[in-house]
Design a protein around this nucleic acid. Structure first.
Lengths: 136, 136
DNA sequence: TATTAAATTATAATCATTCTAATATAAAAA
DNA sequence: TTTTTATATTAGAATGATTATAATTTAATA
């Protein structure tokens, strides 16, 4: 499904800015910051403003189209919400998707058995932090 | 071991500010922000400055005495590094420790089996997010 | 007690994010 | 198609957490 359809499906008014932001989020893999998105889109959409990018991301988050990823250096990164996945955070700032159905199941089963009714699957996240060689 | 000994053991000059910050981190369970720590200590240590709290926390982090916890509302919370544990983040801002040796082992074994030499145990974190009833 | 390197402090600066109010626009109505 | 209207975008100001600066103070050693 393309960006335009996704917006319609969520009853989000389809402005060119929103379509472009969503397309970028769907197609890039860098887990961009608001600034990253702004810089990338300025080429093809020179009128876009940083405020709009922020506004759009807030709207997308309300609709569960994106997930905020909090980072050590106080900038928020955005993750397009596709199927269940985790993240690897590298000390140099890179963020990678990490998908592992077997791990999902292992953890789901463990929590269902040991903490039933307290948490559900989507509440639980696995975060992997890796130090790049050069960083201390 | 008390705060003073811990500082000495890490070769960190034992100032009254550092001792008090460390004691508070060791004894409170709220996972305070820098501001929280500053507000709490002002009573018994009126001369302390917010800058010092920040400086001290940076120093503690370098020495692995504390862990930064990144939150949704862009404030950093601090966690005293005791034995391996995870965190439950509530939507109202509360952060709770979550300790479960069986879960540690389950995850360790899984990663050692499936991703040997790529990640080690301390790289892996489990994050639990829970929405309080009142929050949307 | 004197020395000195390091820590603390008040304040200024930074920077990501949010707010504001004016303008523009998508989508529904006429 | 044109008009209408609620909503979105925009530029710029404001906010707020954190970091940097430079002067002063202090812990620990000699």
């Amino acid at each position: 499904m393309d960006a335009l359809d996704i917006l319609k499906q969520h009853n989000i008014k389809a402005t060119i800015q929103r379509v472009k932001v969503l397309e970028y989020l769907m197609n890039c893999s860098i887990h961009p910051s608001a600034e990253d998105i702004y810089m990338h889109l300025k080429n093809e959409l020179p009128m876009i403003s940083l405020s709009s990018v922020y506004n759009i991301l807030i709207e997308f988050e309300k609709n569960n189209l994106v997930n905020k990823l909090m980072t050590d250096n106080n900038t928020i990164r955005y993750d397009y919400t596709k199927c269940k996945h985790y993240h690897i955070y590298y000390s140099d700032g890179k963020i990678e998707d990490f998908e592992d159905k077997e791990l999902d199941n292992l953890i789901s089963e463990y929590f269902n058995k040991n903490y039933p009714n307290i948490v559900n699957d989507n509440d639980i996240n696995v975060v992997i932090n890796i130090k790049n060689k050069k960083d201390k």
